[in-house]
Structure formats: structure tokens, C-alpha cells
Computed example of a mutant assay.
Amino acid sequence: MNWNRLVAAGFFAVLSVAAFSAHADVQARSSHLDIKKVISTVEDGGANCGIVNARMTYLDSSGTQKVLDYSKFAACGNQGG
């Protein structure tokens, strides 16, 4: 196994553990989200292809505007390659 594959496998293993931890944290704190309409979504990170902070502004079924801060994988255009 060459070093590039070993480094890549280690990197994805770390990302998998981080994603699982983030997912478990969200599940532990969340319940039902009452989202009628999404107004906007924004994510930090720029060129970062890891886990980034994101914010969604939305209206619930009663028309009240709310904000949800969460972590997610960045939308990278250079994946798979």
C-alpha cells in the first residue's frame, strides 16, 4: 500500500469518526423541526472540505422566523478525485 492511500484512508477514518460524533450530538439534542419554508442557508469554511458550521433561517408553521445552527460536511466541488 503506498503512502498516499494510507494517508487518505487515515483521513477518511478521522472524518468518519467526526461525522458520527456530530450526528450523534445532533440526534441527542434534536426533536421534531417544524419547518414550513427555508429562507436562507449559509455555511462557513470557504475552501475547507471538512466539517463546517452552517446556519439555516426558516419559518415554522405559525410563520415565526427561527435560526438553526449546525455542523455539516462542506459542499466541495473537488471530491472524488
Rank of each mutant, 00 (worst) to 15 (best):
N78K: 13
T64N: 15
V38N: 04
K37S: 10
S16G: 13
V38W: 02
S21C: 13
C49P: 04
V67D: 14
S31W: 00
G77Q: 13
K36H: 14
G10V: 09
V26N: 07
A54P: 02
S21R: 13
G81D: 12
S31C: 05
C76I: 04
G46A: 06
S62V: 13
A24H: 11
Q79F: 10
A22I: 14
F73Q: 05
T57W: 00
G81E: 14
A8H: 10
N4S: 08
S31H: 06
L68V: 03
G50S: 05
N78D: 03
G45R: 00
A24D: 11
L59S: 12
G50V: 07
F20W: 15
I35Y: 04
V14W: 01
A74H: 03
A24M: 13
W3N: 11
Y70P: 15
G50P: 08
S61M: 10
A9W: 04
M1K: 14
F12C: 09
H32D: 01
N2F: 05
S62A: 13
H32E: 01
G77L: 14
N53Y: 04
V26E: 12
E43Q: 06
T41V: 06
L68P: 00
G80I: 03
D60Y: 14
D69G: 11
G50R: 02
V17Q: 09
T64Q: 15
S16A: 12
K36C: 11
K66N: 12
S62I: 11
R29W: 07
C76L: 06
